[in-house]
Amino acid sequence: MRNTRTRARRAALAATAVTAALVLAACGNDGDTTGSGHQDHGSTSPKASATATAGAHNVQDVSFAQGMIPHHQQALEMARLAAGRASSAKVKDLAARIEKAQDPEIRAMSGWLKSWDEKVPASGGSMGSMPGMDHSAHAGGSGMSGMMDDKEMEKLKKASGAGFDTMFLTMMVEHHRGAVEMATTEKTKGRYGPATAMADDIVTGQTAEITEMNKLLGKG
């Protein structure tokens, strides 16, 4: 009886050893099957994948950057007028914040376009030549950009005091609404991560500023 149990125990131990050997061999074969299996996975995952993501953009991303740059440039032009023409400290503060937020965004978008080998809008260049920009889309216009036309900008430049404050706020509300609309389109249709993230910031920040400006106009 004891011999039978001993033989059974030895057979079980031998089976366990064989199973363990097979498992180890299988693991070793997995590593050998790809030859540079883990190396291949590493090179196509963190490194190549990160590069692909960084360069992944579409036509909408290009249109967004090429349209938003001149849009921001006009906002900066309007904001810089406030320092010497506005009578309200709140309007001056708002203008300074607009400049602080949008100037770095212009630099970032210009960098994207250069890296994509796409045209970077020139400062003060023609708005109508830029993709997605409707030069007629000024305050009260039907386009989405909210850009001011030359006559409106001249009128703003000639204003001062309380009259400037009201004109600036009214125009900037429309300008911001255009930017929010453009940014919403980018969030929906864009592919490039940094661009859609910027678009999200624009929607959040400028929507809040629209509310602030409407309150200053007595509409809030």
Rank of each mutant, 00 (worst) to 15 (best):
I106H: 02
G128M: 11
H135Q: 15
K157I: 10
A159N: 08
G125Q: 05
G146H: 02
M127K: 04
H135E: 15
M147P: 00
S129K: 12
D117F: 14
M133W: 13
G128Y: 11
S126H: 12
E152Y: 04
H138M: 15
S136L: 13
E118Y: 08
W116N: 05
A108F: 05
R107M: 09
K151P: 01
K119G: 05
M148I: 04
A83I: 01
S136I: 06
D103Q: 10
A159S: 12
A89T: 09
M133S: 15
G143S: 07
Q102V: 00
G124M: 15
R85D: 01
D103P: 00
D150H: 13
S142N: 13
G143K: 09
R107V: 10
G111L: 06
P131G: 11
S115W: 06
W116E: 07
D149G: 10
A86P: 03
L113N: 10
G132L: 12
A122N: 09
P104L: 04
I98M: 01
E118A: 15
H138N: 14
S115P: 03
K100L: 00
D150T: 13
K158W: 09
D150C: 04
Q102M: 00
D103E: 09
G125I: 09
A122M: 06
R85L: 04
G132P: 10
